[in-house]
Amino acid sequence: MKPFTYLKPHDIEAAIPAGTPPGTKYLGGGTNLVDLMREGIEQPDHLVDITGLHLDGIEELPDGSLRIGAAVRNSTLAAHPKVRKGYRVLSEALLSGASGQLRNMATVGGNLLQRTRCPYFYSDAAACNKRQPGSGCDALDGFNRSCAVLGVSDSCIAAHPSDMCVALSALDAVVHVQGPGGTREIPLTELHRLPGDTPNIENTLEAGELVTAVVLPPPLSARSTYRKVRDRASYAFALASVAAALEIEDDKVTRIRLALGGVGTKPWRAYEAERLLLGGPADEQAYRRAAEAELAAATVRAGNAFKVTLAEATIVAVLRDLSKAGAGS
C-alpha cells in the first residue's frame, strides 16, 4: 500500500480543513477504501478518520424524522428498534449486504460512497474509464454479467453495489453534508451521478465535503420490504434487488415507493413504474406493466440481458407479496 498520513480529529471543524486538500480521503470503517488502497485503485496521500467526530448517533427529531449519523455502523443501524419498526426496508437491505464482520465495520457514510465491484474496475490490466479516464471500457464486450442495464453510457456500465442506498432511495432519504462552504442537504436520489462521459466522477459532493448524517422522513404508513436476488443465498452482491413500499385502499394503489439495485449505475429509483402504479389497480397485471415500463429504458449487453427479466419478475413478486401481506391495513 502506498504510504499516507493518518489523522483522527475529534471535531468536524478540524476534520474539514484536513479533509479538503487534493489527495485526501475521509476514512470510515475502511471496508471498501482500504481494499481499494491495497489494490492501488485509490492512492490517497492523507486519510482523515471520521469515527472520532461523534457522528455515531441515531435520534428521532421532533417532526418524527430519523437522523442517522454518518459514522453509525451498518449492523447497529440494521438492529436499531426504530429502523426495524418504521423503516423495515432499510433494515432488510442492510442485513442482506456483506457479512456480519463487514457490517460491524462499515459506516453509513462509507456505504453511501462505496465504489463499484465491476471486475474491470478492479483489474489494472483492463481498460476502465472509471479507474483511468479515457482508457476505455473492457466491460462493454467482456464479462459483463454483473454490470448495469439502467443509466449506462458508452463509457461505463458498472453497477452500483450498495443495498442500503436502494432502500434510502425508496425512503426519500436526505444526505446532510458539511464542507468548507458550510452545510447543505442533498436528496439521496441526487447524491450519485450517472456515468455519462465521466464515470470517474461518481457523486455530487464537492472537495472537502463530509457526509455528516442521513435523515429519513417520518415512517410511511405503507409496509415496506427489500428483496435481493443473487448467485448464492448470502454474502454476494445483487444481480437484481427491489426496495418497495406499497399501500392499497379499495384495491387501488394509494402509495408506492420502488427502487432497484444491481441493475443501475446508481441506486435506481423507479419513478416511471411508480407513476404508472399510483392510483391504478393493485393487481398483478398492473405490477407487470409497471415493471416492464421501468425496464424499457434498459440497454443490455451480451452477458446481462437476463437482468431485465430478473428485475421485472422481482418487482412483480415483491409487490404481490406486499399486497398479500395486507398492505394498507
Partner: peptide, 26 residues
C-alpha cells in the same frame, strides 16, 4: 487479504471484524 474469507476475524471491543481491512492505527 480483502475481506472475503473471514480467516482473519478477531474481536475488537467484543465485535467481530475482518482484521485485514482494519488499519491498525484506527
Amino acid at each position: 487479504d480483502q475481506g472475503a474469507c473471514g480467516a482473519c476475524t478477531v474481536l475488537a471491543d467484543g465485535r467481530r471484524i475482518n482484521a485485514c481491512l482494519a488499519l491498525a492505527v484506527a
